[in-house]
Structure formats: structure tokens, C-alpha cells
């Protein structure tokens, strides 16, 4: 599912929507991220950023999930 135009989730601007193509985190963290609905094929919306730009608030599967940039950088998207 590698996509040439895939971008990191962190590049998404507030209010923008995109589709997840790949989640590169593995192990316990990977399973945790996936269990929140952050999965390939899901639509994700950037809701906003916390003070000082980290963590991010994401809308996925009808819920809001807070995720630090470091973890969000491991999630790839296409706009």
C-alpha cells in the first residue's frame, strides 16, 4: 500500500481531511494506535493542536484522539 505521494500525518493543517495509507508503528504502540481507529483506509481530520504545537487532536471513526507529533509522524496519509 506504499504510495508515492504519501505524507506524514503531521503535515495536515487544521480542518484538513485525509485518508490513512499506512501505520508504521509496531508492537504495543502500533496495536494501541490501531485500536483507536487509526488504520489504513480510515479518514482522518486534523481538529487542532495543543499549546506549543504538540500533541495533535485528530478526528477518526467519529471520536477525537490526542496523539503526539512523534507518533503521528509514523502515520502516512494521502490528501
Amino acid at each position: 500500500m506504499q504510495n508515492q505521494s504519501a505524507l506524514a500525518l503531521t503535515t495536515l493543517k487544521q480542518g484538513e481531511q485525509a485518508m490513512i495509507t499506512q501505520v508504521r508503528s509496531h508492537g504495543a504502540l502500533g496495536r494501541r494506535i490501531r485500536s483507536m481507529g487509526l488504520l489504513p483506509g480510515m479518514t482522518v481530520t486534523m481538529m487542532g493542536k495543543a499549546p506549543m504545537g504538540d500533541p495533535l487532536a485528530l478526528r477518526v471513526a467519529n471520536t477525537t484522539v490526542a496523539l503526539r507529533k512523534r507518533e503521528a509522524a509514523e502515520i502516512l496519509i494521502v490528501k
Binding site: 504502540l29 494501541r32 494506535i33 483507536m36 500533541p55 487532536a57 471520536t63 477525537t64 484522539v65 490526542a66 496523539l67 503526539r68 512523534r70 507518533e71
Partner: peptide
């Protein structure tokens, strides 16, 4: 510990 936290309504 990574922050993967739901913000419930």
C-alpha cells in the same frame, strides 16, 4: 509513554 488518548465528548 506515548500519548494515544481519546478525548471523549
Amino acid at each position: 509513554t506515548p500519548m494515544v488518548m481519546e478525548m471523549p465528548p
